[in-house]
Every structure is written in structure tokens, then in C-alpha cells.
Design a binder for these strands. Structure first.
Lengths: 228, 228
DNA sequence: CACTTAAACTGAGCCTGATTCATTATAAGG
DNA sequence: CCTTATAATGAATCAGGCTCAGTTTAAGTG
């Protein structure tokens, strides 16, 4: 088992594990969890079918690996996307934009998340980790008195992520691209004091491309250095 | 095929179809979609395995039947729960409470909804139908000038349903009961002009029990008269 | 009341695909 | 160059969704 390597270099093992994860992600995104055959994933990873089971207990576990990695990367990207010195309001906007763009860019993988938490099991740890990014921003905001605090943070969190997830679905369904105004409006109602904005007139590209570049590079970096 | 009955009474056929749906709902809710064996469902419905396939093309289709029926019932319940003459604000609160309670009461079935829309297929028709209840309330609100209209209705819809769904998950995860304040606060930020409210101090039962009774009776009625 | 027949129902067996495991290959260590 | 623990392999096993040839049921019909 790769768990206790002594004969083979750790790097080699991790590389293989990561390449299986890559293959799985690709196939899952392509044909969905049920549509994916483990044999296809194995082939895509240039590995025998049995080898997959050396690294992952079963197909579900493999899915959990893919989804977990995604959220871990998302957390890193989010942290990079937020300017530490900005106001709470600005940070929320940064996180919101980043989040919405990520949901849209990786819609298929995000969708897999549901499949990874069978029934009312606890959420994946990595998701909880990600959510803390929001909590930290809010906590700081409260400490500094920058936020109206008549509504509990926990509830605002549900507003924030719930809205963005549904908005992403809506945009996807209507085949619309990323729309800045969704975040602006969300913040307007969440933190008030705002200038709400009509939906983007047409398919205008996201303006904060550098933000996504940051993410991409981090992800690339992560993917090659392996994780899990 | 039950599609063109001539030898058997329609009522009988529909009763059987409905009893299969009942069995499926029960088993799905119990062990999830993947955990459910068609043979178990058949047994629970006192029917042979093959019979299930007379009524539903496959397991997916059976799931769609269960989920579809749920949302249809939900729509009826929602319509019953809303007082036609109330203010927009009041109607939204009624719908919000009803929605949150339903999500909590039938959490397992709601979860199945995700499984029923494989990949970015369009949503189930019944879900869209349900969403229209919200749209009608909002439209009326706008027509009457009761709503601040700086934010598009479509986006408010995502705020409304997205927030409630995430709130329901949060409550479920923390094993908390229905909490009135979630809806109150949501409306406070959505429609403004509000008195936000701290989370319910303890596990206080939902106060508008009659509302749920209305729903239940409608559901019972529906279930026996069959649908699909 | 037989009798005919379309509609319903049944469950054994087929078939796909996940998972296992006996066997073989690999890579250090001596 | 052996030895041996670790990895990798893929044929065999197994589970469970789905099919279909055969059986039962329930109206009709004379």
C-alpha cells in the first residue's frame, strides 16, 4: 500500500495519486459520477483498474478525493484573492466575485460536491475550511464595528453562499456568463449602504481577470505538487 | 402497459402507481438513491420487480416521479399557505416560513432533488412551477409599488430560495429545529424596513402549525387520488 | 356460465460495471 | 546478483439494474 512507502520514493507515489485524481476529475466532469466507469478513469490515468483501488477505497472515495482537492484549492485561491487591508465590505466583494466565478468556471466539479456528501452526513472538511474564509472576514468586520450586527453571522453566511450558488445555477441554466452585478446586489442587501445595479447588459467578460489568474497558477502549482 | 387501460379500471392502475411511488419515496428517503435496491422498493410496494418497470422506465425515472410529486404537492401547499389579500411583505413571509418548514420536514426528499437533475439538464418542470409562486407574489408587489425595485426579481429569487435552502442545511446539520427568525431576517434584508431578530433562543416548535396541517391534508388527498 | 383475449404481472436470467485478490513486476538494500 | 517488501496488474467474482418469455387476471361475449 502506498500508505507506508519505503521502497519507492514518496514523490513517485504522490505523483501517481495525483494523476489518478486528475483523470478522475476529468472523467467525472465529462460524464458525471454515474456515467464514469472506473475502468475509464484507470485508462485515462494510464494505470490498471486495480491500482485505483490501491489509492482509493472505492469510487465514492475517489469522488471525495476529487471534490476535496477542489475545495482545498478554492480556499487557497480565496485567500490570495482577498486584500488583507481592504475594508470588510471590499473583502466581501472580493470573495463574492471570486466565489461566483469559481462556481461558474468549474460548475461540473462543484455539482459533484452534492454526490460526495451522501445523505445528511457532515459536509466535507474542506468545505468547512473554505467557509471559514468568510467567517474570518465577517468576524473582523464585527470586531471593527464595520458591520451592522443585527443579524447573526451564521445566517449571513447562508445568505451569502446560498445566494451565490443559486445565482450560479441560474446563470448556467440561462447560459449567461459571469455577471458582476450579482455580487454587487448581494452585498447591497447584505451590508446595505449600496448602489444596486441592473444585471449586466450583455455578455461582458469578468473584469478581474488577474484574480482568476492568481487562482489558476495556485491550482497549477498545487496539482503538480500533489496533495490529499 | 398501464398506459392504455381497457381491461382494468383506471383507478386501480393509478392506485398501484401511487403505491409504488410511496414505497420508492420511503426507501429512497431511508437509504438514499444509491442505497436503494429496486427489488426492495418492489417488495415494499408488494409488487414484483418487473412491475416497477411497467410504470417507470428505470430507477432514475422512478426518482423523478417521487421528486416531481413532492414539488407538485409543495406548490399546492404554498398556494394554500398564502393569503391572497395580505401585503407582499406578509405573503413573502408566509411563503418563506412554509418553504423552510417543508425543507426541514422533508429534508431527505428534498436532497433527492439534486440526484433527479443529472448534470446541467433543465430543472424539473415541477420545480419551475413552484418557483412561479414566488414570482407571482413579487410581480404583484412591483405592480403595486410595494417593493423597492432597484434589484431585479430574478436575483431576489435566488437570494430567497438560495438562502432558505442553505439555512435548512445548516439547521439540519446542527440538529436545530425550525427557526422562525431565519425567515424574518431574510425578509429584513430582502425587503428592508425591518426588525431583525436574534436566532430562536432554544428549540421552540414552529408556531404556525395550522399551516402545515393544511399542507398535510392536501398531500394526503393528492396521494390517494394519484398523479404523475 | 364457460370462453376468449387484452392487459397486467411475475421472477429467473442476462449484462454491465464495481470490487477483490492471486499472481507478477519493481526497486532498494545488502 | 540475490532477497524481499512494496506496487501494479487484470482475470475472476459479485451486485444489482433491467429484460422478457411465460403466467395470471379481469373484462367482455355468446
Amino acid at each position: 500500500m502506498p500508505a507506508t512507502p519505503r521502497h519507492t520514493s514518496r514523490a513517485r507515489v504522490e505523483a501517481k495519486e495525483s494523476s489518478i485524481l486528475d483523470a478522475a476529475e476529468k472523467i467525472f466532469a465529462q460524464v458525471g459520477f454515474d456515467g464514469a466507469k472506473v475502468s475509464d478513469i484507470a485508462r485515462a490515468a494510464s494505470v490498471a483498474e486495480g491500482t485505483v483501488y490501491l489509492y482509493y477505497k472505492n469510487k465514492q472515495d475517489l469522488l471525495a478525493g476529487v471534490v476535496g482537492r477542489f475545495w482545498t484549492q478554492l480556499t487557497l485561491g480565496a485567500e490570495a484573492a482577498i486584500e488583507p487591508d481592504a475594508t470588510t465590505r471590499a473583502q466581501l466583494e472580493q470573495l463574492g466575485r471570486y466565489h461566483l466565478q469559481s462556481l461558474l468556471n468549474q460548475f461540473e466539479v462543484v455539482s459533484l460536491t452534492n454526490r460526495a456528501r451522501p445523505q445528511q452526513e457532515q459536509d466535507l472538511d474542506q468545505v468547512r475550511e473554505y467557509v471559514r474564509v468568510f467567517d474570518r472576514i465577517m468576524q473582523r468586520g464585527v470586531d471593527r464595528g464595520e458591520l451592522p450586527k443585527d443579524i447573526p453571522i451564521g445566517q449571513l453566511r447562508d445568505v451569502f453562499f446560498g445566494t451565490l450558488e443559486f445565482s450560479a445555477r441560474t446563470l448556467k441554466l440561462r447560459e449567461r456568463p459571469y455577471d458582476h452585478s450579482v455580487v454587487t446586489n448581494l452585498l447591497a442587501i447584505m451590508v446595505g449602504s449600496s448602489n444596486a445595479v441592473a444585471a449586466a447588459p450583455k455578455g461582458k467578460e469578468p473584469s478581474n481577470r488577474d484574480l482568476m489568474n492568481t487562482l489558476k497558477s495556485i491550482q497549477r502549482q498545487l496539482k503538480t505538487s500533489g496533495d490529499s
